[in-house]
């Protein structure tokens, strides 16, 4: 369960956030949302695919960590070291909430930091302090604030990116058939990737449009990221071998 509250320096003055990684903190995720500005970092380690949100039917770009629910192959011995951590993983237990604020009689929507009080990362003993003893925000909290801002803008930009991909029929569904060292065969379904035939057939003006918005780079990053499926396979085989041994 989660309990989201607006962060404030009065009630939450003493709170600390555990920033280490582990399944007990909910890091055992199959995939996490990402966005074009982050693709360069993400594609160095993880495959980038596209996935429909079950609640809205909208497409997200996702960084994939495993082959099935609750499988994060990069989280080993409760550690997630040596890899880039996507921002939507790092953001926990914080999120952006919208709040209507009336200023000079005009209503504005403000984005405020919210905190999930039920997250096991939230405690008073260990981790990063949120506030300085007198109530000012800690450097850690300033980082969080900047990160949430980046995510917010990134996901908005991702929506525009996806709209263009759909408009030019650049997404296609695929089924990943894998065979592990032990001979077992598995299928991963429900993900989408760049349709390279459509991409190759794009007229010059569309390519220019994609390029001007920075999306052409993102498209090729996503294509290149597919080679990381091999890393996932390697990690999965290692995991299987160690469980057997």
């Amino acid at each position: 369960m989660s309990k989201h509250v607006l962060l404030n320096s009065v009630e939450h003055l003493d709170l600390k956030i555990i920033t280490s990684r582990g399944a007990e903190f909910g890091d055992n995720v199959w995939f996490t949302p990402t966005f074009p500005q982050e693709f360069r970092s993400v594609q160095a380690h993880y495959p980038i695919f596209f996935h429909k949100d079950a609640a809205t039917g909208q497409f997200f770009s996702v960084a994939v960590f495993g082959f099935t629910h609750q499988e994060n192959l990069f989280l080993q011995d409760n550690n997630w070291q040596g890899y880039y951590l996507p921002l939507t993983v790092r953001r926990h237990p914080f999120l952006i909430g919208k709040q209507a604020v009336v200023e000079d009689g005009v209503e504005h929507i403000q984005h405020m930091i919210h905190l999930d009080l039920d997250s096991p990362r939230v405690n008073k003993e260990q981790g990063e302090a949120l506030f300085l003893p007198l109530g000012g925000s800690s450097p850690y909290l300033d980082d969080v604030s900047a990160m949430l801002q980046t995510i917010h803008q990134g996901l908005q930009d991702n929506t525009a990116f996806i709209d263009l991909l759909l408009q030019h029929k650049l997404l296609e569904s695929f089924t990943l058939d894998i065979q592990l060292d032990d001979g077992s065969k598995h299928q991963m379904m429900g993900f989408y990737t760049i349709n390279e035939d459509s991409l190759a057939a794009l007229p010059a003006e569309v390519l220019a449009q994609l390029h001007n918005q920075g999306y052409l780079e993102a498209i090729y990053m996503a294509i290149a990221s597919q080679s990381n499926i091999r890393s996932l396979l390697r990690l999965k085989n290692q995991l299987n071998a160690s469980t057997v041994a």
């Binding site: 809205t56 039917g57 909208q58 497409f59 759909l166 989408y192």
Partner: peptide
Amino acid sequence: NKIRQYGLPPI
């Protein structure tokens, strides 16, 4: 109602 809000995905 949801289709009014989000639309159906084209693929």
